[in-house]
Structure formats: structure tokens, C-alpha cells
């Protein structure tokens, strides 16, 4: 893919994350260009999910800055970051199981359309209009992700593959500029994995930048434009899929140094 604007949508500068004595991330510099699909890989415990949690505001970094569209966001809470245009999925599916498929996606619209407590309670006309608008845009997303037939099913009744897809749909509902997907293919069979990767491509084709953590190398090599490799909280390599496949340090990190 050709990036006309060589503009970074996300920039992490010298980010340090220490949990007590444990350095989850040390002095990490990391950029994501606008419009690309960037993958983060690395062995277990390399700091990938920690990195996601910092970007999306689950906790602030110990040191360093996170810039989104040129503005610092490292001090913001998760819901404020969501409002700025970053949405995410979770490694272990965090759907609202007691709600329907449609309601899950409707909740994803929360950053864009909101009604006040009083106007919701009294069902004022403006509330009804907004609610109809939310429902319509949620149904559009369900069509896009292919779950429109199941809109009224409880979310926890879906098979895992569809739950993962629904979680992506919910994240899409906020109309983000950057989507962070934490292991979108984990636990999926081959067909489901194919569906998930096509969906990620389709989302990217809409102009949404995608940052993903993934263990399935086939998915990674197929869909990403650029890969960063983390090990022990440090970036050990970065580049195109081909470059990473042939990088000696990456092979060492994954398979051990004796090879």
C-alpha cells in the first residue's frame, strides 16, 4: 500500500511502564502511520497488551508520551480517549453478554450520540430521534460485519468467532480513526480466521488505521503493512512482513538463540 500522507496518527515517545519492579515496557518509541495496518508481535509477556492498555487509557504510562493526531493523550482516561477516536477490542472477549447483539453495537455509538438523563427519562422527541438514529447506524454496522440476522440474540449466545466479529463491530460503531484489535483471531478456526482478516481489511479500506496484536503469523503476514516486534518490553525489530520474516533477532526471540 502507498501512504500518500506520511503522517503519524499515533506516536509513542520513550514510553516506560513499570509495575513495581517489573519493567513491562522500557523506553519504547513507536509510530503508526495514518491509514496502515500495523501489527505488533512478540512472545508472551513481551508487553503487547500493556502497550494497548496505555494507548487506550486503561492506565497512564510511568514515563513518556503518547501523541494521537499530534496531541498528547497519555494523561486521559479511557472514555476520553474513546471520544478522541481510538477504539479497541479485548484479548478475552469483553462483550456485554446480557445485552442483545444490536444493543452491544448501539452502546458502541455512545461516544457520538448521547441523550441527557432527563430527556431519556421523559422520552422527549429529541431523545426518540437520537435513539432511532443510533439504531439505524448500529444496523448498518451489523450489515457490514454480517451479523444482521442475529441482531436480537443475546451476545453470549453467539459462537466465539461471531463474538470476536461483534466486538470489532462494536468498536467500529464509535466511528474511530484508529482501531486497536487485541488478538482478533485468537481461538478461531480457519474459516473464522479468514472472515476476521477480510473484515479487518474491509475496515482498513474505509480509511481506518488498524493496530493489532496477533499470534497467528498467517494473519499477520497476510494483512499487515508493517510489523513491530516486542520482546521483554523493548522493540527488537520493525519493518515490512518480509523484512521481519528474515530478521535474525526475531527468529531468535521466538525460537531461541541456538537456531
Amino acid at each position: 500500500m502507498n501512504f500518500v500522507e506520511e503522517e503519524n496518527i499515533l506516536e509513542l515517545n520513550r514510553v516506560v511502564m513499570a509495575f513495581g519492579g517489573l519493567m513491562a515496557l522500557s523506553n519504547l518509541n513507536f509510530q503508526v502511520k495514518k491509514g496502515m495496518i500495523k501489527a505488533i508481535i512478540g512472545p508472551n509477556g513481551a508487553g503487547k497488551t500493556t502497550l494497548f492498555n496505555i494507548i487506550t487509557g486503561s492506565f497512564p504510562p510511568t514515563e513518556g508520551s503518547v501523541m494521537f493526531k499530534g496531541l498528547p493523550i497519555e494523561h486521559l482516561k479511557a472514555h476520553k480517549i474513546a471520544e478522541r477516536g481510538i477504539s479497541r477490542t479485548f484479548q478475552t472477549v469483553e462483550l456485554f453478554g446480557n445485552m442483545t447483539v444490536l444493543e452491544n453495537v448501539m452502546l458502541g455509538c455512545h461516544t457520538r450520540v448521547r441523550s441527557s438523563f432527563l430527556s431519556s427519562g421523559f422520552q422527549l422527541p429529541q431523545f426518540r430521534r437520537k435513539e432511532a438514529q443510533v439504531k439505524e447506524s448500529a444496523m448498518k454496522i451489523l450489515k457490514f460485519i454480517g451479523l444482521v440476522d442475529k441482531f436480537n440474540d443475546p451476545a453470549d449466545s453467539l459462537p466465539l468467532g461471531e463474538q470476536k466479529i461483534l466486538e470489532i463491530g462494536r468498536a467500529l460503531a464509535s466511528e474511530p480513526e484508529l482501531m486497536c484489535l487485541d488478538e482478533p483471531a485468537a481461538g478461531l478456526n480457519e474459516t473464522e480466521t479468514y472472515v476476521a482478516s477480510s473484515l479487518i481489511r474491509a475496515i482498513n479500506a474505509k480509511g481506518i488505521t488498524v493496530l493489532l496484536v496477533e499470534h497467528d503469523m498467517k494473519v499477520i503476514m497476510n494483512i499487515s503493512d508493517e510489523i513491530a516486534v516486542l520482546n521483554y518490553g523493548q522493540k527488537i525489530a520493525e519493518g515490512s512482513p518480509q523484512e521481519i520474516q528474515n530478521n535474525r533477532r526475531v527468529i531468535e526471540a521466538y525460537l531461541g538463540s541456538e537456531i
Binding site: 487509557g57 471520544e83 456485554f96 468498536a171 464509535s174
Partner: peptide
């Protein structure tokens, strides 16, 4: 159900 997921969806 899930505070992390709710806040990631922009819920304060």
C-alpha cells in the same frame, strides 16, 4: 458487566 469494555466504548 465489564468496566474496561464500557470505558473503552466512551462510557464515563
Amino acid at each position: 458487566v465489564s468496566e474496561p469494555a464500557a470505558s473503552a466504548m466512551g462510557v464515563d
